[in-house]
Design a protein around this nucleic acid. Structure first.
Lengths: 210, 210
DNA sequence: TCATGTGAAGACATTCACAGCA
DNA sequence: TGCTGTGAATGTCTTCACATGA
């Protein structure tokens, strides 16, 4: 099996999300053009993405919704449990914790860490705050494989190093620096400042073109 | 001039950031391979990106740092002032406000909005909170062109519509839905849940390949 | 000699166009 | 008839390979 691209997986996750909503509402079938307009891509793109799934649609009717959901859920491994930890309880860390505490039943934040002793040994949003020192121990005992980094940029690399040593295989990094990691560790960079600056650039741009 | 791609602009912004740090430290020249390793791309990629700038490097020496910064700053329009507003003062909105209040001297959040009357007519992180009703008036008077949406998903589209009617040309959308906007409005989608789910997928993936 | 600048090749992603099926 | 599935064409982005210049 050829490995799926990041974009492919992102779109599949969105299709899954939409299908979940739709199954609660009505209908036993779903068309590629429905998924397409919900996610903002072309119907051909949808069908191409679905080629990697073990499912086939029926012309004029679409894809059988229930089977579709079962298949896409297992394909995206959303039936497996993944433990997530969060490091750095500043404003952003707290916001993510309270906003995204339970992303899916199978994917939740099981522990958080901060370097400030004032903050530790407490519970925030139903989640225990440990001191950074105990990261290796807690990560191993919780069997966490994914981590969210919301520490200041100057500590992001050392945090990543510690996490990886403790067994973390996927990192969502909110610090605006490039992390150096072994190639078996996946890093998703979320750079909010960059997003704002980029938007400012393109917003300006469309002003000028008039 | 052919229009630059999003990726191109993202990388240029990162080069600019790195060059700013470097000029404070030392050196009058900067190599493409320095920029490359700082940002995590190949040197060829850097040189390709810099082709759109009106600057040329000197073999064996690199690019003259000061001129480079001047040129890239003006190319990215980072010498122009842009007013940003934020809509939705939940956890995430507050975090962004306090974390990114001043992104650059020329780019700052000048007003925030919330629909909850309890929250309005106050100042948070040095920024006035207005009621959503007054969005058109305030946006026009502040001459804002960029907006950050951190309202719940079910209100994101209507918020976007209002913003656009008030003159907003660029939106950073944290709600997990696709916004429908006129084509002269730029939308940057920041979907944190999706990022976490994607990372969980690829983290799992590398587990399996062993 | 070593880094830049760039045509050409390659890799990757998207769209087109249409065959095939219910 | 009209929606799926997919080969082929197109478009976009990245890397290669090398001529050029200080």
């Amino acid at each position: 099996m050829k490995k799926a691209s990041e974009k492919n997986i992102e779109r599949l996750l969105k299709y899954m999300e939409f299908a979940k909503e739709k199954i609660n509402a009505d209908g036993h079938f779903i068309f590629s053009h429905e998924l397409a307009s919900a996610v903002g891509v072309s119907p051909e793109q949808v069908r191409r993405d679905l080629m990697s799934l073990d499912i086939s649609g029926i012309p004029q009717k679409g894809y059988p919704l229930k089977e579709f959901l079962t298949e896409i859920t297992s394909h995206l491994k959303c039936d497996k449990v993944t433990q997530v930890v969060l490091v750095g309880l500043g404003h952003l860390g707290k916001a993510i914790l309270s906003h995204f505490m339970k992303i899916r039943p199978q994917l939740s934040i099981v522990a958080t860490f901060d370097i400030d002793p004032e903050k530790t040994k407490r519970v925030y949003s139903g989640c225990m705050i440990f001191h950074t020192n105990s990261m290796p121990k807690v990560i191993k005992s919780k069997k966490a494989t994914v981590a969210i980094i919301t520490v200041p940029a100057e500590h992001a690399q050392e945090t990543a190093d510690l996490l990886i040593k403790a067994g973390i295989k996927g990192i969502i990094n909110f610090a605006p620096i490039k992390l150096n990691v072994p190639e078996d560790v996946f890093v998703e960079q979320v750079d909010i400042t960059l997003s704002i600056e980029k938007t400012a650039y393109f917003a300006e741009d469309s002003n000028k073109e008039k």
